[in-house]
């Protein structure tokens, strides 16, 4: 199209296409196909449409909305958030929950996945471990409220065993939310990590063993470097999930105190103060924080090997 005198009208082009190679050149369709565009490309459309409708449009609308405050200049909502410590410290409060929970989840998922990969009845155990995912956060939060409460089984058992003198407070504070996030987030991290761990060719581990590496050195020298990219992705997904905590922070936490997470701030702005634009601004800030963490982790990941882990070229 760039060569001078080569511009054609649509009808001319269609005519040429119909003529095909008879004209001497390669048909329009063939040229498109060579660039990877053919009938199959149309299958992208439904997904693309969905992305536009459910993600791109709301996101763009949200940004526009957050920049149209009820009063003040265009950045007033953001200035209001960062100017009010009660609001801005929700960023740190949420990070203080989401980061440790994500790290603990990964730290639990890796060894368990390593054990499960060697087991014959993988499916049964996987099903049990994944069950919490199906329960929903509210259900888990409700259960934990009873279980971890002052008269719940947890405290009952520890007092009965003589380990505790008086019940330890595990609900309506940080630890309640922490436990709930751990339970609902673990299956997710575990499944992802398991798939990464089992994706590594067992012969690679065998090779390391025959070369004199014991289990510990096999983990540090072989498995961990190969798992880093997968663990980074798992971290990002688990973190984003944890950072968006809402129901359990309200039900199990202290929603006006230490577990006043950023989504509570957004909710209150939008639905209690009916300041929709301000609520949206807080949601955008929340997304921004997630983006910074995810980008940071992925940047770190690029320092490691991230090619295939199968061992063969096939």
């Amino acid at each position: 199209m760039s060569a001078p005198g080569n511009e054609r009208t649509g009808s001319e082009r269609m005519g040429r296409e119909r003529m095909g190679s008879r004209e001497g050149g390669v048909s329009f369709r063939a040229r498109l196909a060579a660039r990877g565009i053919d009938g199959t490309t149309l299958l992208v459309l439904p997904g693309l449409l969905l992305m536009l409708l459910l993600f791109i449009y709301p996101f763009a609308y949200g940004i526009a909305d957050s920049l149209s405050p009820a009063e003040g200049p265009w950045y007033a909502n953001y200035a209001k958030f960062f100017g009010d410590p009660f609001q801005s410290r929700t960023i740190a409060a949420t990070l203080w929950l989401a980061l440790p929970v994500t790290l603990v989840n990964l730290a639990l998922a890796v060894p368990i996945a390593f054990r499960v990969r060697l087991m014959k009845r993988q499916r049964l155990l996987t099903t049990i471990l994944v069950l919490p995912i199906t329960l929903g956060t509210v259900f888990v939060a409700d259960g934990l409220l009873t279980f971890l409460g002052p008269r719940g089984w947890f405290n009952h058992t520890l007092i009965g065993l003589g380990i505790l003198d008086s019940p330890v407070k595990l609900t309506n504070n940080y630890w309640g939310v922490f436990a709930s996030l751990l339970i609902t987030g673990f299956p997710f991290s575990f499944l992802l990590v398991l798939s990464y761990v089992t994706g590594i060719d067992p012969a690679i581990e065998h090779a390391a063993a025959t070369l004199g590496a014991g289990p510990r050195r096999r983990f540090w020298h072989i498995f961990l470097p190969l798992l880093v990219p997968g663990l980074a992705v798992t971290f990002c997904l688990a973190f984003v999930q944890a950072y968006a905590v809402f129901p359990s922070a309200v039900l199990l936490g202290a929603p006006s105190g230490p577990t006043r997470v950023i989504s509570i701030a957004a909710y209150q702005a939008a639905f209690e103060q009916s300041d929709h634009a301000y609520g949206t601004a807080i949601a955008i800030i929340m997304g921004g924080v997630e983006l910074v963490i995810v980008a940071g982790v992925l940047a770190l990941r690029s320092l490691f090997y991230s090619g295939p882990v199968a061992g063969t070229k096939g």
Partner: peptide, 18 residues
């Protein structure tokens, strides 16, 4: 295996990809 000191060559090569 790590205490036997045998060298082993695998069908899938099993090189450490990283």
């Amino acid at each position: 295996p790590e205490r036997r000191g045998f060298g082993m060559v695998f069908q899938s090569y099993a090189l450490f990809p990283h």
